[in-house]
Design a protein around this nucleic acid. Structure first.
Lengths: 212, 212
DNA sequence: ACTTTGACCGATCGACCGGTCAGTATCTCG
DNA sequence: CGAGATACTGACCGGTCGATCGGTCAAAGT
């Protein structure tokens, strides 16, 4: 009988297939990824893939699920980190950037899934994951506002959005920006994180001279 | 003989094909878009597409070129807008968000092309467009810093990056966020633009009480 | 020792892919 | 009225797609 899920944790073949599928999906997208290419990279036969996963879509969903879990696990305990609000924001940016770059393929698949809203493939899945992380991470900003560390006029949701946006944008444009000599951050994400954090906290407008 | 470029400005068929291709490419990506689907949406035969465009890739590049030109034209005269730096930043954010949403399909194709760096399809093209807009738009921040309106500790390039990031992120996550009741901005981009602009200018950190 | 089970494979299916080609309709120019 | 160029089409090509088939093989159960 055909198994609908990776049958066993210790089954080596299914894991190899999942890893290979992650890379191929990340590189070519869902439609551009062929089962043949995945099978080749995994070193198994094409038919074996359909033995472990019911269809291409199920395999893709398994990859998405894996990536989402990895993201949640990696970012979950940021709220519990020590230090004041600036230190936590710094940690959040640093962690997010680091995860995006270390788990490059996973990040690419997830981000791509969000852009392609038209396809209903992993929409519910990404909504769930997004909502989960949204809940956890905005809590940091809400608490900071309650503690008087986030400016009272700023919506915590907006602050979270900006933080995530600068991280995602860096990751997405990095490969293009790398060849732009006027953009110095492609190779130094740490410097980017520090600059972003400072600008986010204290703003980019010059202080009013009348008050200085 | 087969024409390698859209032969004539006034030829109606080529224009219909280009429009249909834009939508299909935006919806399914390069690999997922089939010539058959494009032909159907354009109301022409499949072979006719290859009469006006030498190949699927040439058609895609024409779509990309069109989208890039549209973007540049729409955003080019932001630097010349009247008002101080805050007003210009506001205008830049507003214009960018508005263009992303009005030219939804074009924006989606361009953004997708940047994420898929692996494919060398329109990489050179997107690099050129990116570099062009980069040059024009960062100039706003450089001039603001020279005029003493951008805080001296902030890199103009970083300020531009943050501005573009929040716009792109809003556009990309909008369809997912729409179903998140805790996210109030999906349906009100103007409110988002104002909030972002304020937070960017004045920061999200609470003012030091010792100095207040 | 015999059966069952699940991992795995080569061969193959029908559908669809990008692309070609011969041929037709339409228009322009002389 | 032709002659030639262009817009356009239906039929078709080789190849690849996701998916299925019958079958092999080694390990586990009894």
């Amino acid at each position: 009988m055909k198994s609908r899920l990776p049958t066993n944790r210790t089954c080596p073949g299914a894991r190899q297939i999942l890893d290979a599928a992650l890379e191929v999906f990340a590189e070519h997208g869902y439609e551009g990824a062929s089962i043949h290419a995945i099978a080749q990279r995994a070193g198994v036969s094409k038919a074996n893939i359909f033995h472990h996963y019911a269809s291409k879509e199920q395999l893709y969903l398994a990859v998405l699920r894996n990536a989402s879990r990895s993201w949640s696990e990696d970012l979950a305990h940021v709220p519990a980190m020590p230090g004041g609000f600036p230190a936590q924001l710094q940690a959040m940016i640093h962690r997010t950037l680091q995860h995006l770059m270390r788990e490059n393929a996973q990040s690419r698949v997830v981000l791509r899934e969000m852009l392609e809203n038209g396809a209903l493939r992993g929409r519910q899945l990404s909504e769930e994951v997004f909502a989960d992380n949204f809940e956890i991470e905005t809590e940091i900003f809400r608490r900071a506002q309650a503690d008087g560390n986030l400016r009272s006029g700023v919506d915590p949701v907006l602050a979270w959005t900006m933080t995530m946006a600068v991280c995602a944008f860096f990751f997405q444009t990095r490969d293009v920006m790398r060849f732009n000599p006027a953009y110095p951050y492609a190779e130094s994400p740490d410097r980017y994180a520090r600059g972003i954090c400072d600008a986010l906290l204290h703003g980019i407008a010059a202080p009013r001279k009348t008050l200085q």
